[in-house]
Design a protein around this nucleic acid. Structure first.
Lengths: 253, 253
DNA sequence: CGTTGACTTGACGGAAGTCAAAAGGTGTGG
DNA sequence: CCACACCTTTTGACTTCCGTCAAGTCAACG
């Protein structure tokens, strides 16, 4: 299976095999393992290398004064933790490992060299950060105008799409090793209420969620319930290759 | 008073007077006036020039299926409507004029030339887009973990800071020509409830809001109620020059 | 002076929060 | 292998914040 980062960026640009090799080598170096719950990057600090999630699941989150915590985004393999660091002085939020997570530490000068030598990479990275902020905007809509049900369904559907893009979803299932409490932090609700909604979704046979794996039992209906319109992800292509993926696959958006 | 864009970017980099002149000339050309309510950019379209707000107030918003509308960000003078267009195929949301708004249409090749000739500008634009997404993240926190009161106070405080940066806030007042309904769309609440909260804030003598002007009567208390921590705006410097600004000015963050 | 759009106010209902306690899991150590 | 602690999930009763509906005020404007 190809490198998640490459799979993701190839939604937008095509790389030559030489370029892919270079990217692959870049991501293969200086891996660091973070255990579940560990803080990968802390608010206020200025990391020198750029961190790329290679495996596992991390979260972009902020702790608020009253102890409450807000997860603003989940980071899956192929996502960068801190592109903003190219420019800004310090992180304005934390990156926390949700499960055991492996990150590649990319040296800034190395990336910069690659950027000058591979012009397509610059565009691809721009695209990547732009879609990241589009996802953020979608989260605002979530919280502003969607019910608890819709919010959870929307998040699940989005995760399905994103995992598919990087080749980590098999058919209609994807790894989702979060507790209901963490899901509550991400959707801005209480754990109790998350539980109630999830129970409902299970009872309606919309989803299955067991052993850290979420399976969507009725993809079109979930999309409908979620009110999902995927154009914000700016993914034009359909997935190639994945044999198990039903004919609905290209139709996810 | 200096150009808002320049004032904003100078929070992060210093320009020579020659550079300022070039930026000023860039923003002075091809102005277009949009009347209140007019759609400046529509979802799905790919604008060729980059749009810069010169005066007035615009909103980044998305209309949802049920007719509800979500305002994701307000754009004030010095803000760009569509940097993402450098890379992406199409807008994934609308830009709407809230009041009469003037935008400068900047030709893409012209900007690109400027970017290669002024290396500091590239960094400054990166900084600008990064802080824009930081503001987005803050909005997520708003909706996820703050009460209606906090949300409104937070938004007002943030607008005060942003208007100060571009030199358009006099003392503790700034222009805020939105209806309570639009504020509801931005904070994800109903107009009725916005009204109740605003009435409260007025009764408590925290703010005054009349004739499209918001005045903060007790800045520190508003900051406290809003639970505001301004480091996400990544503004290091204090405001220079503004004589009316009290000694609290540099302490806003 | 009627019309229109923004703001205000009140009564009512419902979605989600709070509190609390029980029931399942899971890992650790004796 | 059991017992214990600890963490998640589940469930129930109660509360509250905010949405909904509806009516009414006020100012601007033709």
């Amino acid at each position: 299976m190809a490198n998640p980062l490459i799979r993701k960026l190839e939604q937008f640009v095509r790389f030559s095999s030489a370029e892919k090799l270079r990217l692959e080598q870049l991501a293969a170096k200086r891996h660091k393992i973070y255990s579940a719950g560990e803080v990968i990057l802390k608010e206020g600090e200025k990391p020198e290398p750029i961190l790329l999630v290679v495996s596992g699941l991390a979260a972009r989150c902020k702790v608020l004064s009253e102890g409450r915590r807000q997860i603003m985004a989940f980071l899956i393999p192929g996502d960068f933790c801190d592109v903003e660091v190219f420019v800004l002085d310090a992180m304005d939020h934390d990156i926390v490992a949700v499960t055991e997570t492996i990150c590649a530490h990319l040296a800034v000068p190395e990336i910069e060299r690659l950027l000058t030598e591979m012009s397509s990479l610059t565009r691809a990275l721009w695209w990547s950060t732009m879609t990241d902020t589009a996802v953020l905007r979608e989260r605002i809509i979530d919280h502003g105008s969607r019910s608890a049900r819709e919010r959870i369904c929307h998040l699940l559907y989005e995760m399905l799409v994103r995992y598919r893009v990087v080749g980590l979803a098999s058919d209609h299932s994807f790894p989702f090793p979060v507790t209901q409490e963490q899901l509550a932090d991400a959707t801005g609700m209480t754990p109790v209420h998350v539980n109630r909604i999830v129970s409902e979704l299970r009872a309606e046979e919309l989803i299955r969620w067991k052993d850290k794996i979420v399976s969507i039992l009725d993809v079109p209906r979930l999309k409908e319930v979620a009110n999902f319109d995927g154009c914000y992800l700016h993914l034009e292509r359909t997935f190639q290759g994945d044999a198990e993926v039903s004919e609905r696959a290209g139709d996810l958006f």
